[in-house]
Computed example of a mutant assay.
Amino acid sequence: MNFERPYILILLLALPFIWQFLVKKKNVVKIKFTNVDILTKITDDNKKFDLHKTVSLLTILCLFFLIISAAGPRKGIVSKEETKHVVDIILCLDCSTSMLALDFYPKNRFDVAVQAAKEFVKGRKNDRIGIVVFSGIPILTCPLTTDTETIIRVLNNSRIGMVKLDGTAIGDAIMLALSRMKQESKSKIIILLTDGRNNMGQIDPVTAAKAAQSMGVKIYTIGCGTATGKSLYIIDDPFWGKRQVYLPQDLDEPTLIQIADITNGKYFNVTTKEKMFAVFKEIDKLEKTEIKVKEYKEYKYLYQIFVVLAFICFITRFVIEKILVFRIP
């Protein structure tokens, strides 16, 4: 609460002086009585309850509420008008068996990617986000939505092997994501995460990237692992049971770089868990949602409340002074 005319509140400083004046003020009337017993009784009753001070207090309260009312008490009601520049984002996550590599021990590549993606989603509450997982074929597991809880739930349920056909269909995954983009959106991006090279599907990744360019879709590519060397895997051998083996890596970095360049995106290489989270944070900074806020303030005036309180104090004072106080005619 604030006041439209706060300078009037300075009158409150006079109330203590008025109180002192009212309390000390006493009208003394001299009358001759032949029997003072009745006066003694009246004096004893007034000692129990000082009506003079009560009347003075009600007078002060009445003045207090009137001053507050005159100052124009009001309560601000703020209304906002927001203009949001929403970004459409589709996460394309490779869920092929090669993502089982334990580069980010004790988690595999896919689990760490999902963790980083969830943190990314939590910070994009105003954007529409969808999810495509792919291996030999792509599958849309979540269409574009602003429902953060649904997106997180879909990510939690994502796992390696959910697409039965193994392989890496990068081009088809991009085309599926493009088919779900809304044409009216001003900003559209795809975050493509993989650790391999395109070896499945009908559409070449570069051709898909050119289609994305024509639609104004930017693609950020994330490559897990390296183009050479070996990665640690745990395999379930039918004879020897679960055991650790090292298998060669096959990351096609040139193609991922080319996809990013064609669409005016950016390529990131990830070899540690920390870098995975850092990459998603960098993409989050690069693609910020623009929100323009216009704020309007309306006021609800509260002076009526204080006028009513002052009136109640005045009526109570009148009743006590004119009716309850014993007066000698």
Rank of each mutant, 00 (worst) to 15 (best):
E4S: 02
I8S: 09
A14R: 00
Q20I: 07
K26P: 04
V28L: 08
V29L: 04
K30D: 06
V36I: 15
N46H: 06
F49A: 09
H52D: 12
V55A: 12
V55T: 12
L58K: 03
L58D: 09
I68R: 00
A71P: 11
K75Y: 10
I77D: 04
V78Y: 13
V78R: 15
S79I: 15
E82F: 13
V86H: 06
V86K: 05
V86Y: 04
V87S: 03
I90T: 11
C92Q: 07
C95D: 15
C95I: 14
T97S: 14
S98V: 01
V112M: 09
A116D: 09
F120G: 02
K122C: 07
D127G: 08
D127C: 12
R128N: 08
R153E: 11
N157E: 12
R159L: 13
I160E: 05
I160G: 12
M162P: 03
G167Y: 13
G167E: 10
A173I: 06
M175E: 10
A177Q: 10
I189M: 10
L192S: 10
G196F: 10
G196D: 06
D204R: 05
S214G: 04
M215G: 13
K218G: 07
T221L: 07
I222G: 05
G223T: 13
G225N: 04
I235A: 09
D236H: 12
E253I: 14
P254Y: 02
Q258V: 00
I262P: 08
F268Q: 07
E274F: 04
K275F: 03
F280S: 02
E282I: 00
L286P: 12
I291K: 09
Y296T: 14
E298W: 00
K300M: 01
I305A: 03
F311T: 13
I315T: 11
V319G: 09
I320E: 01
P329Y: 10
P329V: 08
